[in-house]
Every structure is written in structure tokens, then in C-alpha cells.
Amino acid sequence: MSEEKQCQCAEIQEEELYPRLEEVINQHKGKGEDLIMVLHKAQNLFGYLPRRAQEMVAEGLNVSLNEVYGVITFYNFFSTVPQGRNSVKVCLGTACYVRGSQEVLDKAQKELGIKVGGTTEDRRYSLDVVRCIGACGLAPAMLVNEDVYGRVKSPHLVDILKKYE
């Protein structure tokens, strides 16, 4: 039940952000060349790019929705799913990979019940992969928010994740 409540909260907040997006779009009305800039601002507002926001941007900038989505799916920076409160990033750089980070990633996907790029339903975690975080000596490594974890073995993973609400 508590999970559902949280979800509604997020949606209500989101609803309040649309007028602000409208203001942003009005400053770029009909300017298709500003698409990436406007998408940046929209993602900063919502934390991701909900479909309704994509449609508003398409309409306001006079760009096809199909093109807007093409730009969003091209750049890794943009996300079409809401981000969780905690960002989990497993390193798949060469050193981590050879030391078994794929196993860690598989375990993370299984534990969280989401795929790479996804967010848990309670928006507690988002899962992504990164290519090298400069901690090759600690391989396999992962990040949760700003915290680096080294020599991660899949059995440790649950304990690490638990620390983050």
C-alpha cells in the first residue's frame, strides 16, 4: 500500500511541472533547432522525459514526435523512464568485465527485477551500466550514487543495495 501512495505522490508532483515546461517551450516556440536544449531542460525538470512532455516539445517546436523520440533514444543522457532515488551503476569496463562484473550485473537485474536502463516500481533504484569509472584496481567495481564499491561479488550485492532507501 505504501508503495502505491508514493507513486501517486510522484505523479501529482509531475502534473505541477507541466506548466513550467510550457514556459520553457514558449521561449523556443517553433524553433526545431533548439530541440536538444529544450529536451535537456525538460529532463532537468522531470528527471526523465515522459511521453506527454515529448509530445508538448514536438508540438511547441514544430518537430515531428518521431524525430523527438529519435533524438532522445540516440543520446544516452536522455531517459524515457523515471529515475529512481538511488542510481546503481555496474562497471562493464574491460578490467571489471574480465573480473566478473557481468555476473554482478545479472545478479543486480535479478534482485531488482529490472533490466539495464530501468527503474524499480517503487522508484527506489535505477540500474545502468558504465564503461570504466577509473577504479580498475578494485575490479569488479560498481557505483551507488556517489559511493564506489570495489571487488564486488554477487553475494555482497544485496547488502550493498539494502543500505540505500
Binding site: 511521453r51 515529448q54 515531428s64 514526435l65 518521431n66 524525430e67 523527438v68 523520440y69 529519435g70 533514444t73 540516440f74
Partner: peptide
Amino acid sequence: SVTALFTQGRGFDARVEPAF
């Protein structure tokens, strides 16, 4: 001036599709 299709994704995932 219709743009019913666009390149979605990148690299190995690139494909010509409508939005979503």
C-alpha cells in the same frame, strides 16, 4: 514533411521506426 519514420536508438540498436 510528414516524418512518420525516424532513426531510433544508436549503434547496434539503431532502427527506423516511429516514436515509441
